[in-house]
Design a protein around this nucleic acid. Structure first.
Length: 269
DNA sequence: AGTCACCTGATT
DNA sequence: AATCAGGTGACT
């Protein structure tokens, strides 16, 4: 589920439901969710602490704790995090639980077990993150910054947008949607896209992500459920064989970097 | 830059 | 049985 807008929606939800809660215990149901960290170390770092703030950087989530530790989470493909009203009834795919003093519990729900959670001293967090490009919704993500990065790269436009070192937070869906908005062929080397199209792309990245966040917030407003009909209205993603909303040509699907890219072959070039 | 491994479940 | 899935890190 998660690209930047989904992670932002989760951050918002946890800000509402988890901030102020105190952790009495952590139940690690799948040790691989902690990666290399031992369950003992994780438990020691979180036990007895309160959650003071929930933050996001790109697709990474941070739960800052009152004891100067921070829980780092990455949802990868299928992770989800939310607060259960009653810790006695965790979902089947719960990989890790943080039990709160009031009987509620934060659950890290992840069917594919690709997501990761870890607890570290807050000051160590920046060094633990992989290299990340600018945050696209930050006012600092200017046209100049974007064009400087883009002009240096020869990557196909779609792979460029998905590269977290170039611009952080886009994934398979919103990269495709931004390219559609900017009318750019996903296969074209980003550095050879015209300045006018790059300008459109810079705006489209912000526009698509900004529009998707409230959709995701609605879709995930009920912890652990998915509100049908709230999702961002996709123009091309997942719409192979359906008409392009702009020109009515047939949306195509091609492999790129081992994944599917959806685009309109008529109006994206 | 491209491919694979990590995991599991849904769909064809 | 094979393919696909909104991600990324480690390989060649």
């Amino acid at each position: 589920m998660p690209e930047l807008p989904e992670v932002e929606a989760v951050r918002c939800l946890l800000g509402r439901d988890a901030v102020g809660a105190a952790i009495v215990h952590a139940e690690v149901r799948r040790t691989s969710t902690l990666g290399k960290q031992s369950a003992t170390e994780f438990l020691q770092r979180v036990k007895g602490a309160a959650i003071t703030e929930v933050a996001r950087r790109a697709k990474h989530l941070f739960l800052h704790l009152s004891n100067d530790n921070t829980i780092h989470m990455h949802l990868r493909m299928t992770g989800n995090v939310y607060v259960l009203r009653d810790c006695r009834f965790p979902p089947a795919k719960a990989r890790l639980l943080l039990n709160f003093t009031d009987g509620r519990a934060l659950v890290f729900d992840d069917p594919r077990c690709l997501g990761r959670v870890g607890a570290f001293p807050r000051k160590d967090i920046p060094a633990l993150l992989p290299p990340l490009g600018p945050e696209p919704l930050d006012p600092a993500f200017s046209w100049k910054i974007f064009v400087d990065i883009a002009r240096k790269s020869k990557m196909p436009a779609k792979l460029f947008l998905m590269d977290q070192q170039k611009v952080a937070g886009l994934g398979n869906i919103y990269a495709a949607e931004a390219l559609f908005e900017a009318k750019i062929d996903p296969r074209i080397p980003i550095g050879s896209v015209s300045t006018a199209r790059l300008q459109r792309l810079h705006a489209a990245i912000r526009q698509v992500l900004t529009a998707a966040i409230p959709c995701c917030e609605r879709a995930y407003s009920q912890p652990g459920r998915f509100v049908e009909g709230a999702e961002y209205p996709m123009a091309v993603y997942g719409r192979k064989g359906l008409p392009c909303p702009r020109c009515k040509a047939t949306v195509a699907r091609i492999p790129q970097g081992g994944r599917s890219t959806y685009f309109c072959p008529r109006c994206q070039r």
